[in-house]
């Protein structure tokens, strides 16, 4: 057992992945000498050399495009996108090349690329530095998308994503980078593409991923003081979705609330609501409700707390669900 911050758990996971497989190569802006803006790659260039931890110019499309060529020739590139909003210059490469080449070549050209993206707000940054672009990627056939919420998942899921043969867009909750927890470095991890119940309850099923899992757990705790029992599911995988634990839970509670930072309109919550409504129709006591960001450009840091879903907004949705 080690006590690690989420950031250090990612760093340790990257180190382990590089030790385990010489084909793993890291690329990104300021990841070498600086160790990354959030220090996730701290010390790795010193230990693995400049050929395996590659400092690149500011060229997101070039970095991801180059990673495609590396993957075609036998490497497993791990690309760091410095901030969520910076992935958009690379969006073309991810959607037109990374996601499609395996299918286009009928498997002759492998694409084992991991694209790490620190996402979400809450660190006093601004637009382009606080966004939640996961739905764009979950919508794209050929990509797999995961989001971690805690240090143990950060450590294991990053290694699993790197070892996985398909492209994985890996979302890291940047405001939770400094959260600490015990991580069992020897425990067998659950499968990468699986959801998990992280708090048992009977009244309402609360779904969250990434930074919102902590918020959902806090909401469940506050609700307990008011005599309500909330079950919290950490989705972990956004594409493919693993809704079996969700459906099992909703069939018991009859109520479901999805929480994410991304704008509510056409977010992951919309897809989940549609699927849960279809699969659990006869068990539902209330419509599936969504708590998400507003349809506005990400606000300046002074106002971001107004934008981000918090305890009150989650509990208000729980109240509404119970009121049906």
């Amino acid at each position: 057992m080690s006590t690690l911050t989420l950031g250090k758990a990612l760093n340790t996971g990257l180190r382990k992945a590089m030790e385990d497989d010489p084909k793993v190569v890291l690329m990104g802006e300021d990841i070498g000498k600086l160790g990354g803006v959030f220090r996730i790659t701290d010390g790795l260039q010193k230990d693995f050399g400049e050929a395996r931890v590659v400092d690149t110019p500011l060229a997101e499309a070039g970095i991801v495009g180059t990673a495609v060529g590396l993957a075609m020739r036998g490497y497993k590139p791990v690309v760091e996108i410095q901030f969520d909003g910076f992935v958009f210059p690379a969006y073309n490469q991810i959607v037109t090349q990374v996601a499609k080449i395996h299918a286009r070549s009928r498997g002759k050209l492998p694409m084992p690329i991991t694209i790490r993206i620190p996402f979400g707000g809450g660190i006093g940054a601004v637009e382009h530095h606080s966004e939640s672009p996961e739905a764009y990627f979950a919508h794209t056939t050929g990509l797999k998308v995961v989001a971690v919420s805690n240090p143990a998942d950060a450590y294991w899921m990053l290694q699993q994503a790197i070892a996985h043969p398909d492209p994985v867009v890996f979302f890291e909750p940047k405001r939770r980078y400094w959260d600490k927890a015990e991580v069992d470095l020897d425990a067998a991890p659950p499968p990468l593409f699986s959801s998990r119940v992280v708090r048992a309850g009977d009244d309402v099923t609360l779904l969250a991923y990434g930074p919102m899992v902590k918020t959902a757990l806090q909401a469940a705790e506050a609700a307990e003081a008011e005599g309500r029992s909330l079950e919290v599911v950490d989705l972990r995988t956004l594409s493919p979705l693993d809704l079996a634990p969700v459906e099992e839970s909703v069939r018991r509670t009859g109520r479901c609330v999805v929480v994410h930072e991304a704008q509510t309109t056409l977010g992951l919550g919309a897809e989940i609501a549609a699927r849960v409504s279809e699969s659990c129709f006869h068990s539902l006591e209330a419509p599936v409700l969504r708590v998400g960001g507003y349809d506005v450009t990400y606000p300046p840091s002074k106002l971001e707390e107004e934008y981000l879903p918090d305890l009150d907004r989650v509990l208000e949705a729980v109240d509404r669900s119970m009121g049906f």
Partner: peptide, 10 residues
């Protein structure tokens, strides 16, 4: 173009 650069980097 960037794919060629990546293959060459490999």
């Amino acid at each position: 173009i960037p794919i060629a650069a990546g293959a060459a980097l490999a």
